[in-house]
Design a protein around this nucleic acid. Structure first.
Length: 1093
RNA sequence: GGGCCAGUAGCUCAGUUGGUUAGAGCGUCCGCCUGAUAAGCGGGAGGUCAGAGGUUCAAAUCCUCUUUGGCCCA
């Protein structure tokens, strides 16, 4: 107990923290916490599952620290929190990682390698980094149940996901549609956006302008042709429509006997400088639904969307007026195109199929021609038939297959969708009840995304993922079923066996006769797996194998009170959680109707989204503001940083470094600063306490004065710590940890260490009497306890170590409650004393001003001064009187007398300033003139206003009656002495020195040299000494006058011995010092034991 | 191309019902204190609040545009 710890901590924070960590593991802190909060109200936290297929970086430390700190805070508010770890284990990144390991790439390679061994590798790979993640997470103090994680590839987890999908199917929200995907014809495979991103190349393509003659167009449009532009002539046979912007105004242009429609600004690019004229205008929306003559006459092809409309004008605002003509040729090889085709019922037919080769003979292009090789023939044909207006070359960046460098096509493939648009309104409504930090994310980024919701493309043509549990009748594509459980599958397909693994390819082998009455045929699973975002979105339910098990538990643990992830999760996990939960709890009414499922009660889950609050954190950049990446080699390795600074300093640095949601820079120097300035000060404050508590044999149960009996500065620091606790709690509740840390840092550094402890030091060694000493010990003891509890959520290691030393207990600080001045049981109950805090503020200001004056006039603080005057503007409005702290200011500035100025002292120049918020509303436009008039008020009037009088000020025709609250008084300067002001506090120092003051100053100089020599002689603070002095006459005079005081201060019980004559033998013991004004002093010190004293 | 966010001192960042001296830490210069001592503290210098325009008696703060950077999406 009361062992000093700061040296150990500051020299090797890593070792210091490791020791605490092993105690936590030994004691099983998580279990202790759970036991302590067994019957408490739950605070529900969901851990967003990281993908364990890469090494954790310093940005993961940020996210994990935020989560941990909030959870630790809530635990200290008395809440019970389950902290279940989780792993996101499916998906493309895992497959890519394994491809890399195996030295293969692409779907054909994987199929060749074999699905079974490939998926085994995937499963294995997932946990390659698991240990590294766990070690790091534990090391940074992220308290989590790593022994019982949820894992998305586990059988139980998959079964829950299947159940949820079956609910979508039961509500007719699961359907087979088409999705336009980037496609490599040569490899015969779709590419992920991640793969597309790495394959852009510059290529030359023909740039062609085509016309589409309108059929039966009315009025001014009669005989006109639409003009569109494209760089992909091979898509022209598949033209299914022309899209215009509803709000654009198009020009009707006559050129060379023809009539054309396009944007006027684009006409020159098609028809040249002149030779054309605008003969009319037409708005995009007026063209809607018109028919035109198709470009090619051909048959065959693959129909990918059946629709009643062929070759018509459609409108959409995706059309831009930058490239092209403001009209877009629509073909099923584009995402926007396909979306519009589905919306407006366009017939969509592909001329080029799976291998990007022609599937029909068109315009002399043979069957099987590669798509880009068809461009020339099509262009020639169109030109011959007068459908081509212009052609040129166009160089642009175009996606290529990263494996074979073949240009990609965008191609509609079969895909399964969730009809999330069916309950979009519920999602938007639910979002309004989520508390977002910061709020903008919820209203803006997430809200916008929900408003523009489109159906969720759920399926993936991949291998390692939750298999889509849809079985389709081989003979009848309309006859399909979505399996809800393994039991149901067994019901149809027979025993699955003990070690059934629902992954591919095992699950692909399972077939059964169709259960649909009146139909025949074999049911076979579709080849797709599902988007792994659905896995993670299902996590609130699937983590507990709901509804197969744990129905009650899920009811309690849903929704989450709090989640926290990076900004990039807006359209990821934040959405998938929200979409799955909103469907289940607000849309799937048939599930809840009976109150039971499979003959067991099914408690209703709270309707709405999956989380009540969501904290979003931004990116962590390197120290130069550049994104960290492997390529640039600027990644900060967490292990290195921890070894250097320890986890606490990093945790504090990351959380205090700015608003959590902004991108921030990771600055190693910043972390070092935190360690020294904040954590160093906190541990040194504890050490100070510990040092004197041991020396004075202080015990926590020693009698101490009642709070109200203690000195004002004691009550002040208690008030400050209680205020800081209230501010901290408010910041944590509103998910703004940076604000909590700012307030905490101010308290620790400025208030506790630099003011309270520094001002109170003498009291701890009894220099101010026993009662004062007892009050000081009790106060600092209480304040340190409160401070440690307050800081514990952020710096769990240091606080726990100091807590155990301070309290002599083995019980962790993390089991304690957060300090709360409003809680009657609390240590700082009722300590907030606003008037006291207000009263102390001018004292701190005055000290600062006084040091500034001394600096300016070059009189050091050691030299006492006779008098200072202090004036505080609007002093009467303060809650308490600063005059109670006169002693503090006297000692701090070393002056004999403080004169508090009332009334209208002549030396003080004052100025009235308008109270703008108050007067601005009344005066409006007159404010400027009124402000000038107030500045002109004479001092008598100003002081009269302060005293409760009123004055009329006229501005133009208006007269304003001002009272005290309408102005604020500012002091400008003080005449006749060395003065300084900050506008509210003005002080003046009388700097004349009397011989008495000079002697006292000299005495302090002597004391200073004595203390220095003491220390440099290696003496302990409590050692007694004998002192011999010699020196100049003025020094001797000072010693004669102040000797007893000096002797007391340096612990020289025998007094000071002035030596005039010395013999050669003892000369060596003397050390010479230079004092100001060429005064000479020599000192000899020797240690004496108490017995000889 | 669309949505969202950000630009404040050399550096890292605070600063909203709009209110007149725009703050802190680090760095730098100068100094101080020491019974917390391999620490600590104070003072000075340093800002056209990205740029332009607008609203207002009053703008870092609200609006518009421009610009730079970031994230997500296409």
């Amino acid at each position: 107990m009361f062992e000093p710890r700061s040296r150990a901590y500051l020299t090797d924070p890593n070792a210091f923290e490791q020791a605490i960590l092993s105690v936590w593991e030994q004691d099983d802190l998580l279990a202790q916490t759970a036991a302590a909060r067994k019957d408490a109200d739950p605070f529900v936290f969901y851990e967003g599952p990281p993908t364990a297929n890469g090494r954790p970086g310093i940005h993961h430390v940020l996210a994990r620290t935020l989560k941990d700190s909030v959870c630790r805070y809530q635990t200290m508010r008395g809440k019970r929190i389950e902290r279940k770890a989780g792993w996101d284990t499916h998906g493309l990144p895992v497959e890519l990682e394994v491809e890399k390991q195996l030295g293969i790439s692409g779907k054909p390679d994987i199929e060749k390698y074999g699905l079974l061994p490939f998926n085994e590798k995937c499963q294995h790979s997932v946990f390659t980094y698991k240990e590294e993640w766990e070690t790091l997470s534990k090391r940074i103090g992220y308290l989590l149940d790593y022994d019982h994680p949820y894992v998305t590839f586990h059988k139980d987890y998959i079964e829950s996901v299947w159940f949820l999908l079956s609910r979508f199917a039961a509500n007719d929200l699961l359907y087979l549609g088409s999705k336009v995907l980037p496609w490599c014809g040569r490899c015969g495979t779709g590419l992920s956006s991640h793969e597309v991103g790495q394959g852009y190349l510059d290529i030359d393509d023909p740039s062609v302008w085509i016309n589409f003659p309108l059929i039966d167009a009315p009025g001014k449009l009669a005989g006109a042709a639409l003009v569109a532009w494209t760089t992909t002539p091979w898509t022209l046979p598949s033209n299914m429509g022309v899209c215009v912007h509803p709000d654009f105004e198009y020009a009707i242009i006559e050129h060379d006997g023809g009539r054309y429609i396009l944007l006027e600004s684009k006409a020159q690019g098609v028809f040249g400088e002149d030779g054309w004229e605008v003969v009319g205008k037409v708005k995009g929306s007026e063209l809607r639904g018109l028919s035109y003559t198709p470009l090619f006459d051909w048959e065959g092809g693959r129909v990918v969307h059946e629709g009643p409309n062929h070759h018509i004008v459609v409108v959409d605002d995706f059309v831009s007026d930058e490239d092209g003509t403001g009209m877009v040729h629509m073909a099923p090889y584009g995402a926007d195109d396909f979306r519009i085709a589905q919306r407006d019922g366009l017939q969509a037919v592909l001329a080029f199929g799976d291998e990007a080769r022609a599937v029909a003979e068109i315009a002399g292009v043979a069957l099987g021609t590669f798509f880009r090789d068809a461009n020339k023939a099509f262009v020639r044909d169109l030109k011959e038939r007068g459908r081509l207006l212009r052609i040129s070359q166009y160089r642009h960046s175009y996606p290529h297959c990263w494996r074979c460098e073949t240009p990609l096509i965008y191609y509609p493939s079969p895909a399964w969708f969730l009809r999330t648009t069916a309950y979009k309104d519920q999602m938007v409504e639910g979002n309004k009840h989520i508390c977002w930090a910061p709020a903008e994310i919820g209203e803006g980024r997430f809200g916008e995304w929900l408003e523009n919701n489109i159906d969720w493309a759920l399926s993936r043509d991949r291998f390692w993922g939750t298999p889509l549990p849809v079985w389709v009748n081989e003979d009848d594509p309309e006859d399909w079923i979505c399996i809800e459980s393994f039991k149901q599958l067994e019901h149809y397909a027979g025993d699955l066996g003990e070690n059934f693994d629902p992954h591919r390819p095992v699950v692909d082998e399972i077939t059964f006769p169709t259960p649909t009455p009146g139909k025949s045929g074999t049911m076979r699973r579709v080849p797709q797996v599902i988007d792994c975002w659905f896995d993670s979105g299902a996590m609130p339910l699937a983590q507990h194998h709901w509804p197969f098990e744990n129905r009650e538990r899920v009811t309690e643990q849903f929704p989450a009170s709090f989640i926290c992830e990076g900004l990039d999760q807006t359209r990821g996990w934040f959405y998938s959680l929200h979409a799955v939960a909103t469907f289940l709890t607000t849309h799937d009414t048939s599930l809840w109707e009976s109150g039971e499922l499979w003959g067991q009660p099914l408690p209703r889950l709270k309707p709405g989204g999956a989380y009540e609050s969501c904290m979003v954190n931004g990116l962590l950049l390197d120290k130069d503001g550049v994104k960290m990446s492997k390529r640039l080699g600027n990644i900060v390795k967490p292990a290195d940083a921890i070894k250097e600074h320890g986890a606490d300093a990093i945790r504090w640095g990351l959380l205090a470094g700015g608003a959590a949601h902004l991108s921030r820079r990771y600055d190693d120097k910043g972390i070092a600063e935190v360690r020294r300035r904040v954590l160093g000060t906190l541990s040194a404050s504890y050490d100070f306490f510990a040092l004197y508590a041991r020396m004075e044999n202080w015990r926590a149960d020693d009698p101490c004065p009642d709070r109200s009996e203690r000195e004002p500065i004691d009550r002040w620091v208690l008030s400050q710590v209680a205020t800081a606790a209230a501010e901290n709690a408010a910041a944590w509740e509103s998910l703004q940890p940076a604000n909590a840390l700012r307030s905490l840092e101010t308290f620790i550094v400025d208030e506790l260490s630099n003011w309270y402890i520094r001002r109170s030091r003498r009291r701890f060694w009894g220099a101010e009497g026993e009662a004062s000493q007892a009050a000081a010990f009790a106060t600092l003891y209480e304040v340190l306890q409160a401070t440690l509890r307050m800081a514990a959520p952020v710096i769990p290691f240091l606080t726990d170590a100091l807590w155990k030393e301070l309290t002599g207990s083995n019980e962790s600080v993390h089991l304690q409650l957060f300090p709360d001045a409003n809680h009657a049981e609390d240590l700082v109950a009722g300590a907030i004393d606003q008037p006291l805090s207000e009263a102390m503020d001018p004292i701190l200001r005055a000290s600062s001003l006084g040091r500034g004056i001394r600096e300016r006039v070059q009189i050091r603080v050691r030299q006492p001064l006779a008098k200072m005057v202090v004036h505080i503007a609007n002093e009467g409005k303060l809650g308490g009187s600063p005059r109670a702290y006169e002693a503090a200011i006297r000692e701090e500035l070393n002056v004999k007398q403080v004169e508090w100025v009332d009334g209208t002292p002549d030396f003080l120049q004052v100025k009235a300033k308008p109270n703008f918020p108050r007067l601005g509303k009344r005066a409006g436009k007159d404010m400027k003139a009124l402000s000038a008039a107030i500045a002109q008020l004479d001092r008598a009037t100003v002081f009269d206003l302060q005293g409760g009088g009123t004055v009329d000020v006229s501005v133009g025709d208006n007269v304003y009656t001002l009272e005290g609250d309408d102005i604020s008084l500012q002091t400008e300067s003080a005449a006749g002495m060395e003065a300084s002001t900050d506008g509210f506090v003005t002080i003046g120092l009388v700097t004349e020195l009397t011989p008495e003051l000079e002697r006292e100053g000299l005495a302090r100089e002597i004391l200073n040299r004595l203390q220095t020599q003491r220390k440099e002689s290696g003496l302990e603070v409590q050692d007694r000494i004998a002192v011999r002095l010699r020196g100049s006459a003025e020094v001797q005079a000072a010693v004669e006058e102040h000797g007893p005081w000096i002797a007391e201060e340096v612990l020289a019980p025998q007094g000071l011995t002035w030596v005039t004559e010395i013999d050669a033998d003892s000369n060596d013991a003397f050390r010479d010092w230079e004092l100001p004004n060429n005064q000479k002093l020599s000192i000899a010190i020797s240690k004496i034991t108490l017995e000889t004293a």
